[in-house]
């Protein structure tokens, strides 16, 4: 991906996906059936849209909305677009596709020169797959920096404009956080709780409904009716890989797996006044490694 020669007006793309928000789950078979009117955008995607608008405002740039979804997403898409996006592009995806396929189709659009995006903002995960992998795949294909699962995003302007950066906070294991600085071009993904999409002004909303002249640019995706081969098993989150137990005998391995006979701190009940109780909790958290030395 060639960096832009100039960053006079950065282009920030919110990249969202039309999903079924209320699919019917067969609790016995584990199969999902689409609901008839449950389509929409996840809270994370709407949060991404607001984040993109805020960043574009801060940088005096342009916000564009790119959506992966079928034609019946257009009405809702225009409602989101009415919040302040200058262009709305839908990558036509009529059916359920694998994550990698969705990412490739989005990249084809995001990489087109007429869009020329500098920053892509995604939700951290969709409701249908929940893998959160699309933003990483976009960053890979676009050869952009990536920072995923952000809890706060602060655009920092600089001169020249191509030195604009994002300062963000990212969630880490163990309830810890890290503060990072992200140069552009970049792909970031944000959690659903960090921003609420602003209400569109009435005059913008007047052009948002169906049967209006407001337009969604449709870019080629999969041809209609085409989709990845259907799954024969229900969708399940991927299992985490954990190291196996290290004991020599089966008995030792079971002991290690269950934690029996290992040296652990048994739970204890304490009675203390609030300040003392708070101190004890903090001490325990530090002892268990959840707090750094600065906390």
């Amino acid at each position: 991906m060639n960096p832009k020669d100039t960053f006079l007006s950065p282009v920030v793309a919110a990249c969202i996906k039309w999903v079924d928000l209320r699919p019917e789950l067969d609790s016995v078979q584990g199969t999902l059936a689409p609901s008839r009117r449950g389509g929409g955008f996840s809270a994370a995607d709407l949060s991404a849209a607001e984040t993109a608008l805020s960043i574009a405002e801060a940088w005096s740039g342009t916000a564009v909305l790119v959506c992966a979804g079928p034609a019946n997403a257009d009405r809702s898409l225009l409602e989101v677009a009415a919040s302040g996006f200058s262009r709305t592009v839908r990558v036509d995806i009529p059916g359920q596709l694998e994550t990698a396929t969705v990412a490739e189709l989005l990249v084809r659009t995001l990489g087109q020169t007429d869009l020329d995006v500098d920053l892509v903002v995604c939700g951290d995960m969709s409701y249908d797959r929940s893998s959160g992998a699309v933003p990483a795949m976009l960053a890979h294909h676009l050869d952009f920096c990536q920072a995923l699962g952000l809890l706060s995003v602060e655009p920092v302007s600089a001169e020249p404009a191509d030195d604009h950066t994002i300062v963000a906070i990212r969630r880490l294991d163990g309830a810890r956080r890290e503060r990072i600085r992200i140069p552009i071009p970049a792909v970031i993904s944000v959690e659903g709780g960090i921003a609420t999409l602003r209400r569109a002004a009435l005059d913008a909303s007047m052009g948002e409904s169906a049967h209006t002249d407001a337009e969604v640019e449709v870019r080629g995706g999969h041809s209609h009716g085409e989709s990845d081969p259907p799954r024969t098993t229900p969708w399940r989150p991927r299992a985490r890989t954990l190291a196996g137990p290290g004991g020599e005998s089966a008995f030792d391995r079971i002991l290690e797996l269950t934690g029996s006979l290992s040296d652990t701190s048994p739970p204890r009940t304490v009675k203390a006044d609030p300040s003392e109780a708070a101190r004890m909790i903090m001490d325990s958290l530090a002892e268990w490694g959840y707090l750094g030395s600065d906390d």
Partner: peptide, 15 residues
């Protein structure tokens, strides 16, 4: 409502 919209009414939702 779609009938009204097809006839030219502008439907503005969430308002």
């Amino acid at each position: 409502a779609d009938k009204a919209a097809e006839a030219g009414a502008r439907v503005v939702c969430s308002t």
